[in-house]
């Protein structure tokens, strides 16, 4: 089977390395942005856009496409980098992030960027918006699926749980939520700022099928997503245990790099670690 093919997995991993390098470079060039939460989400994004989703970069409005909503909108650099690698945007355009007149806003804007399904940035909105898409798919008897990537900080938001209830109430088995469980939010560790655990039990109690995986392991991401597809009558939450800043040693688990661009030296080191020449 293709998904167990070692070469295939390592191809995804090398795309992920490029996406990480793009994301760090974009934030470095913009002088601001959120490296930590971008890097923790990269492997999920790559698995989505390069294997799991049915989509066509040449036709971003293709009605049958699967939908991906980045609820944690501050992960925009990683999303844009994945979209560029997939062919939605020229890779050269990535350097325009956060600059005046750019299609690449600091947080995703569905009216500006091809491939962006929902404008996000204010936290806690994406799951409910994904539910709306899932309801529409059911109404239209379409088979496309909806994938929403939430941050663990968004578990603080009341609306997340309102949406959790709605998805379960309307039996939305066509929506899958990835929870980027990197365990850090702006002010500190999630468990110190606002205790979230036991998270899996919470989602189960809300009627969701819950899977816990290593969010940096391509094979596990793929297997869990395929499992979600087979679950009928209820939505699936995939709790992805991740490391904030994954891939750059000094950003890993660092609060400092939640929302700060690297300086010149840090940037060079980050590129060395990612095995890419600085741009």
């Amino acid at each position: 089977m293709e998904i167990y093919d070692g070469e295939f997995i390592s191809e995804l991993e090398s795309i992920a390395r490029r996406v990480r390098a793009h994301a760090v470079t974009m934030i470095y060039q913009a002088g601001s942005g959120h490296p930590g939460g971008s890097l923790s989400a990269v492997d999920i994004l790559v698995a989505m856009y390069f294997h799991l989703m049915k989509h066509d970069p040449k036709r971003p409005d293709w009605p049958e496409r699967d939908r991906f909503v980045l609820s944690k909108g501050h992960g925009a650099p990683a999303l844009y980098a994945a979209l560029a690698e997939a062919g939605y945007l020229p890779v050269a355009e990535l350097e325009s992030l956060r600059k005046m007149g750019s299609r690449l806003q600091g947080h995703p804007c569905m009216r500006k960027t091809p491939g962006v399904e929902m404008s996000t940035g204010s936290l806690g909105h994406g799951l409910a918006a994904g539910n709306g898409m899932a309801l529409a798919a059911k109404l239209d008897r379409k088979l496309y699926r909806i994938f929403v990537l939430c941050g663990d900080g968004e578990m603080d938001v009341g609306e997340t749980w309102e949406a959790a209830m709605l998805a379960s109430h309307y039996k939305l088995d066509n929506i899958t939520m990835f929870l980027d469980r990197n365990k850090l939010q702006l002010d500190g560790p999630t468990e110190k700022i606002m205790s979230l655990e036991p998270l899996a039990d919470k989602w189960k109690a809300f009627g969701w099928h819950v899977i816990e995986i290593d969010g940096h392991n391509m094979k596990e991401i793929i297997q869990a997503t395929n499992e979600a597809r087979s679950i009928k009558g209820r939505p699936t939450a995939i709790i992805c245990h991740t490391i904030k800043g994954k891939g750059v040693s000094f950003m890993e688990g660092s609060l400092h790099f939640h929302g700060k661009a690297p300086n010149d030296d840090e940037y060079k080191q980050a590129m060395r670690e990612l095995g890419v020449a600085p741009e």
Binding site: M118, N131, G132, M133, L135, A136, D140, E159, E162, A163
Partner: peptide
């Protein structure tokens, strides 16, 4: 074609957004 969202207006508006983004 009617969805009661319960006493959750924020959820209702974002759900509306997803439906509208899907052509409704």
């Amino acid at each position: 074609r009617f969805f009661n969202c319960g006493i959750a207006e924020q959820n209702m508006i974002d759900t509306a957004a997803g439906l509208a983004a899907s052509g409704k």
